[in-house]
Amino acid sequence: MKPTRSSWPTRLVASRATQSYFACLFFLLFLGCGQEQESLHDADHYVPPHWPANLMDAAHKMDQRYQGLLDGELDSEDLERNRSELRDLIAWAPEIAADTDLTESQWLPIYELSEKLRKRLEGADTNYADWQSDIDQLRQLLTEAPVSAPGYSDS
C-alpha cells in the first residue's frame, strides 16, 4: 500500500534520516566503539580514595569531613568536595555495616539514619550545625557496632 501523504518534506526526511542514521552508525561502530577491549584491567572497578576500610574508618572520615564543613575555612572548591565526600561516606555506611557480623536489627538504625542524612545532603541545606546530633549518632552507631556484633571478642 502506497503512502497517501508522500509530500516533499516526507521524502526529504526519508533520505536525510536514512543517510544520517547509517553514517552515524558506521562512524560509531568503526571509529568510536570499534576498539577491541584488549585487557580486562581497564574494566577494573574504581575504588575512590575515601572509601573506608571498615566501620571505624568510616566514622573517622565522616568526622573529618563534617568538621571541615563546620570550620568554614575551606574555599568553595574544597567545601564542595568535602560535602560530596561526606555524602558518599554516609551513603556507603549501610553497605560497610552490612558486610560485618551485625544482625539485621543492629544494622537497621544505621541504614535509617544514613538515609535521613543522605536526603538532607542532597538538598540545599547548608546549616551544617543542625546536623550535629544525627552525624554524632551515626558515628556512634558505627564505632560501637563492631563491639555489639555477635562473635566480638576483646582478644
Partner: peptide, 13 residues
C-alpha cells in the same frame, strides 16, 4: 513495507 519509506522515516525520526 506497510506504510512506505517516507512515513516510516517520519515515524522513526
Amino acid at each position: 513495507k506497510s506504510y512506505g519509506k517516507g512515513a516510516t522515516a517520519l515515524w522513526l525520526s
